[in-house]
């Protein structure tokens, strides 16, 4: 084991897990707001919920491509996704928004500034996600780190319903090791970088909790149409 670790920390060796994760990244999704609807908070929220639903389908098939995820029992796969789905959505928005100052790139055709967020009733959430974006921007988060961190967020979702705790721990360990190996090769100048990345996860969790609560209350209002998968996962977090 120590020998293997030493060997993996060399520029010659390709990081297999990170390479697989890069290859598993879902394609881009367009928001396509309905041009027939007049601009309103309901239109903005309908667009976001529809976008989230389509992204969720892609994120579930992405999860299946995380090395080791499909070896977990089906029940544990479900539990991890039911806990982490919003963290995954938010981390993707945050990464897309890195190059866009003070705006959230929900999709290439759906970029939201603070004013638009406020009129959709999403200002607090907008601010919280931007705080995360600023953290990652200041670290110059790389695509390799983003895909690995996203898989870690899923494996580390702290579901209370895990049946095979050891198997989930094994998945966390292999992803953690992949990140350590990547940083060892690409950021040897900053030995604390892995820790810094992991330390952004509490803010991601906090932001995700806020988002789920907010969309649950929108659901209860009943004014915004929501697709079944999005509703199913909102229910899972209540």
């Amino acid at each position: 084991e120590p020998h293997r670790k030493q060997a993996s920390c060399s520029a010659q060796e390709e990081n297999k897990v990170v390479t697989l994760l890069l290859g598993a990244e879902p394609e881009k999704v367009c928001a396509m707001p309905d041009p027939a609807l007049p601009d309103s908070d309901i239109k903005a929220l309908t667009t976001l919920c529809d976008l989230a639903d389509r992204e969720l389908v892609l994120n579930i098939s992405w999860a299946k491509h995380i090395p080791g995820f499909s070896s977990l029992g089906l029940s544990d796969q479900m539990s991890l996704l039911q806990s982490a789905w919003m963290e995954i959505l938010i981390l993707r928005v945050a990464f897309r928004s890195l190059l866009c100052e003070d705006k959230l790139v929900f999709a290439e055709d759906y970029i939201m500034d603070a004013e638009q967020a406020e009129s959709a009733g999403l200002l607090e959430l907008h601010k919280a996600i931007l705080q995360l974006v600023r953290r990652y921007r200041s670290m110059r988060l790389e695509r390799e780190e983003f895909v690995t961190l996203k898989a870690i967020a899923l494996a580390n979702s702290d579901s209370m319903h895990i049946e095979d705790v050891e198997a989930v721990q094994g998945l966390q360990d292999s992803l953690h090791e992949a990140l350590l190996d990547y940083e060892c090769v690409h950021h040897s100048e900053d030995p604390r970088r892995t820790g810094k990345l992991i330390m952004t996860l509490p803010l991601l969790r906090q932001t995700s909790t806020k988002a789920v609560r907010h969309f649950c209350s929108i659901k209860q209002d009943g004014r915004v149409p929501m697709h079944k998968l999005f509703l199913e996962l909102l229910d899972a977090n209540v």
């Binding site: 098939s61 995380i66 090395p67 499909s70 089906l74 479900m78 996704l81 039911q82 199913e232």
Partner: peptide, 20 residues
Amino acid sequence: KEKHKILHRLLQNSSSPVDL
């Protein structure tokens, strides 16, 4: 878990999962 039919179905649809 009974309630989570869509998630269950999407996870069961095979799409070349990768094992370690």
